[in-house]
């Protein structure tokens, strides 16, 4: 199975220097992620979820460990090779308003990655922007509107469309539905699941709400103090958590009935 993994992470470690000494970001993190698979990532604040996401995006260089993407040494890519390959992993953030230039039109926001990553020739761009919007369930005509003119749910769909623009294999969803109203949240989760089923995308779904992580993930990794303390099929972990952190998370998730 390891050979078939889209993403193979081994013994990843990163510490930060602070006044009080060295602080652990991630420690000895290893996992595989396959095509069409979602790995949920949960854990308390400061458990290393964001550091891990930043290392995978190559926004932070780890101290040690390896990351292979499609069999290729992702951390060894030179600056030039990385620039050419960066679009392979994309990220969607919690607050779509903070993730866009507020003055940009939706079409402009989607044209940027198409231009920067030279995905399609310039003359093709308007058609591709229309396609991207339709893939996330928005009308192509929305391209002319400005980011601040559309609703929070529509904005998060645009953020997903922008991530899709570079034909990624993996999207890191960092609390991507956490700020949405519940009525909108379910529709965005549905869209993510549909895109995955249709296009074989892999996701890393970083979330604080284990109930939400359960509906969208195949497997889950529970992190604490920089380490993965428990991993397995998400339904198993929710039904019978083995780690103290996993037990605490399940117990703390509020129940409606």
């Amino acid at each position: 199975m390891t050979n078939a993994a889209l993403l193979a992470v081994r013994n990843l470690a990163k510490t930060y220097q602070s006044r009080g000494g060295r602080v652990t970001g991630v420690a000895d993190v290893s996992f595989d992620l396959h095509r069409g698979e979602t790995l949920g990532l949960v854990g308390p604040s400061g458990s290393g979820k964001s550091t891990l996401a930043r290392v995978l995006m190559r926004l932070t260089e780890p101290d040690s460990g390896t990351v292979h993407l499609d069999g290729e040494d992702w951390l060894a890519l030179s600056a030039g090779a990385l620039r050419a390959r960066r679009g392979t992993i994309q990220m969607v953030f919690q607050d779509p308003l903070a993730a866009f230039n507020p003055r940009a039109t939706i079409g402009g926001a989607l044209a940027d990655p198409l231009r920067i990553h030279a995905v399609v020739p310039r003359t093709e761009r308007p058609r591709r922007i229309g396609e991207l919007l339709e893939r996330v369930g928005l009308p192509a005509a929305l391209a002319k509107r400005r980011i601040h003119e559309v609703s929070g749910g529509q904005r998060q769909r645009v953020a997903i469309a922008r991530a899709l623009a570079t034909n990624p294999r993996l999207i890191v969803l960092d609390e991507a539905v956490s700020a949405l109203d519940v009525s909108v949240r379910g529709k965005i989760l549905m869209l993510l699941a549909e895109l995955q089923a249709r296009e074989g995308l892999a996701y890393i779904f970083v979330g604080h709400d284990l109930a939400v992580v359960r509906v969208i993930s195949h497997r889950v990794a529970v992190m604490d103090k920089g380490r993965i303390v428990e991993t397995g099929p998400v339904t198993d972990v929710v039904a019978d958590p083995q780690s103290e952190t996993g037990k605490a998370l399940v117990a703390a998730t509020p129940r409606l009935f």
């Binding site: 396959h34 519940v182 699941a193 995955q196 109930a211 509906v215 969208i216 195949h218 099929p233």
Partner: peptide
Amino acid sequence: IDFTSPRLVGEVTP
């Protein structure tokens, strides 16, 4: 969404 909500993905990794 709680622990009894229907899941949107299959049980096992494809």
